[in-house]
């Protein structure tokens, strides 16, 4: 019988102990590690781009008459950081935090509350105040209709088009 299997003793001896004394020692994570995300409430404009990109619906937009709430539920999060990729204002930051256990379930939620504007014409609740400001800054030409909801915009456009068509036919005559 060969003595080869006994070489394991040499391997084991030379390796020694490989487990670390976590949590008393630093965990073995690399700088690349993707952990929990942090949303900066001062920067977030409530546009919902992250909600659309989020594969497991960990980010949701809860809408009421007065407010739009961006809710992050870490219990569903898969730490893909797609939200960070798509956020237009860099309001979301990735962290290396993975120690997420808690005895209070409310700790698992992060809320960003946004106030809502109303449509200038019909008065229905419309986008967030910050979103409106953001659009006006990015594209000044939208100023005229930035405070009008999409339904009213459609109606105004349809009215304008029909008026013009009438005008053309009159001109032809």
């Amino acid at each position: 019988m060969s003595h080869k299997p006994l070489k394991l003793i040499i391997i084991a001896g030379s390796k020694g102990r490989v487990t670390v004394k976590y949590p008393y020692q630093e965990p073995l994570i690399t700088p690349e590690f993707r952990g929990e995300i942090e949303i900066d409430p001062a920067k977030c404009i409530g546009c919902g781009a992250c909600v659309k990109a989020c594969p497991p619906n960990a980010l949701e937009l809860l809408e009421s008459e007065k407010e739009v709430i961006l809710r992050y539920f870490v219990g569903r999060c898969i730490f893909c950081w797609r939200c960070i990729d798509v956020c237009p204002v860099n309001a979301i930051k990735g962290t290396r935090n993975f120690e997420l256990a808690t005895d209070k379930h409310t700790d698992l939620y992060t809320l960003v509350v946004h106030t809502r504007t109303t449509c200038e014409i019909c008065g229905k609740p419309f986008e967030t105040t910050r979103m409106q400001r953001y659009i006006a800054e990015k594209s000044p030409v939208t100023e005229e209709y930035a405070s009008i909801c999409p339904d009213c915009r459609k109606r105004l456009l349809a009215e304008a088009v029909s008026a013009r068509r009438v005008g053309i036919s009159e001109h032809k005559e």
Partner: peptide, 19 residues
């Protein structure tokens, strides 16, 4: 194998389900 897990984390940001 643990070394491979760490290597994957270095390359992708996650030990498994690299995303």
């Amino acid at each position: 194998r643990e070394r491979v897990m760490q290597l994957a984390e270095l390359l992708t940001g996650s030990r498994k389900t690299y995303g």
